[in-house]
Amino acid sequence: MGNKTIVTGVIGADVHAVGNRILDYAFSQAGFDVVNIGVLASQEEFIQAAIETGAKAILVSSLYGHGEMDCRGLREKCEESGIGEIILYAGGNLVVGKQEWEPVKEKFLEMGFNRVYPPGTLPEEAITHLKADLNIE
């Protein structure tokens, strides 16, 4: 597939399906080829899907607060799988409870994510960023 292929999914033991469906719709509308692996997705499933489809980016959603534990090591696993340069975004309610956003963001950036989004971000924002990061249009 082309330059516009991306993998989306909800990581870990998380079953929040609504936002995932909207992201799928919004990115597809914006011209991306969306490979949506759905909820309850493991790190391995994200990487497998990215390799199989030649995706340029992985968008990880996490709405249930376990994102911190679930996302740890994803960048390293990508590197081991030979797609170490792939763009990684994460967004949602990434930690348990109401916390300052900046430290949470820092934590995810340190984990190797390229961009991190707080709860309530509209798809349009991530679409604009992804187009910039992939040099589209």
Binding site: A13, L40, Y64, G65, H66, E68, M69, V96, G97
Partner: peptide, 24 residues
């Protein structure tokens, strides 16, 4: 909820060591 008691155990341990609940 997914019967992943091993991971829950890890969450308990991390919650003890970090001083905040890492489980939802």
């Amino acid at each position: 909820r997914q019967n992943r008691y091993q991971e829950a155990e890890k969450g308990i341990q991390e919650s003890i060591s970090s001083g905040r609940s890492l489980l939802n």
